[in-house]
Amino acid sequence: MKERILEVRGLNVDYGLGPESVRAVRDVDLTLHRGEVLGLAGESGSGKSTLAYGMTRLLPPPGIVAGGEVIYTLDDGSTVDLLRIRDADLRRLRWSEIAIVFQGAINSLNPVQRISTQLVDVLKAHSARSTPKARQDRARELLGLVGIASDRLHSYPHQLSGGMRQRVMIAMALALEPRVVIMDEPTTALDVVVQRQILRTLVELRERLGFSVVFITHDLSLLVEFSDRIAIMYAGQVVEEATSADLYRTPLHPYSDGLLHSFPALKGPRRELSGIAGSPPDLRSMPGGCPFHPRCGRAMDVCATRTPVLGQSTAGRSVACWLHPVSVG
């Protein structure tokens, strides 16, 4: 279980270059183990999506990876730094090792090409020796995997419902049996019923195929149910990391606590919904000290002056908060 597959070390991601640049992800360390579901939560603008696209080098301009390492462990045990391999090697690794389900499937599918073409594209690019017939069969099989009838294979994206499009994207992500799947708010745009159906499909598929998942969402209660471990992001930094069970029972960071109270729990006892007052800081003018202190109900004097770092707290968990003294190192 504890075999590392993807390790992010000291990742910094900026928007823009030079004096006008804004740091959207700051010194993030993250480890994904084999077969694990790692949740990444935070409000919009917390940097969780930027982190995901930055570590895969898919962040559109003006995004820039300003430093850090993304170490991926291949099947044979050797490692590569995704940020420093050649474009051709990265292209080969993409989708065959790490696949992504993007936010909003409406825009993820090429509007002018059939579903079949877009599925077959992946198969063709990564296994040139397969026959057209085999590729078609595989595409049909993939649609079956996510519960779409094979007569939809030759449809255009606009002929499918939102839920179906997202299923197609999931099928496409699994096409090459990747070892890591990154999911960026895969169900946000859908209604609750469809959301549940798709999540159920995902859980089943993961159990069957055994891939690791990085699951990004602002809906923490969804994560608690679905993931093994959760990292909470605020203003571009990881402020707390814990197992879902621990985080749900005893969130250490006041921000995690606030997030947990922003959404109704999907099951279990009802909690009181309070939300978090105020809005995330402007990355151009971050407050001094702990970036969360202006919104924090439990802020102390030290919070405004000194920045807490992520470390092991006395409870044996990772948190960056002055309420929980940490042992660094």
Binding site: G18, R57, L59, I64, V65, G67
Partner: peptide, 20 residues
């Protein structure tokens, strides 16, 4: 393209280690 870094869709530029 500013300061010798070319913005590219699909392959986010990675700054050299020293500047990080």
């Amino acid at each position: 393209s500013t300061r010798g870094v070319r913005m590219r869709v699909g392959f986010t530029p990675v700054l050299a280690k020293e500047t990080s």
